[in-house]
């Protein structure tokens, strides 16, 4: 994880299907309301398309559909979190984003083995903060390229 020399990780907390997730705040470029998205053909379902973020064409991932949750209509609280990581600008659509908190490092525990049945390699661990349970995301795995490539590849063959 991205951690400083301090024992806290400053993290942004966002909501997704009644669960609270978090990731280091220094990955976040900005938080936007939902804007017009242009669909990109031949991409996996969770890639919603691209939008114009102040002149930069930015791909958008719907985190609900990325994690296999039920897809919902966007509401007033729906937000796009723009991630800047590894020379990539990617927007993540979440149900709501509202908080930045310091998570003490020693509170972080490995993800329980039994969470979900699908692969959970994009979860770095969980942390208890007051009486909330935060799920720490591994952004590298969330943005994993292999998944994109393999899906587009099969699409190409279909065409």
């Amino acid at each position: 994880m991205v951690g400083g020399t301090t024992e806290f990780i400053k993290s942004i907390v966002f909501q997704l299907a009644n669960e609270e997730y978090s990731m280091p705040v220094d990955l976040v470029g900005s938080i936007e309301r939902v804007m017009h998205i242009t669909r990109i053909p031949g991409t996996p379902d969770f890639v919603k398309g691209v939008l114009n973020l102040r002149g930069v064409v930015t791909p958008i991932i719907d985190l609900r559909s990325r994690f296999g949750f039920e897809v919902q209509e966007y509401t007033d609280s729906t937000r796009t979190i723009i991630i800047q990581h590894n020379n990539m600008d990617v927007g993540l659509i979440v149900d709501a984003a509202y908080d930045v908190i310091d998570i003490p490092k020693e509170r972080i525990e490995p993800a329980p083995e039994t969470v979900g049945s699908v692969s959970i390699d994009y979860i770095d661990g969980v942390a208890k903060h007051d009486d909330r349970l935060l799920i720490l995301l591994n952004i590298d795995k969330v943005l994993s390229h292999e998944e994109i490539k393999s899906t587009t590849h099969s699409d190409v063959q279909k065409v």
Binding site: P41, V57, N86, N87, M88, L143, H145, K149
Partner: peptide, 11 residues
């Protein structure tokens, strides 16, 4: 389209 989306067919 950025570094995330590469090799999109016919785009």
């Amino acid at each position: 389209l950025g570094n995330y989306l590469t090799d999109i067919f016919a785009i």
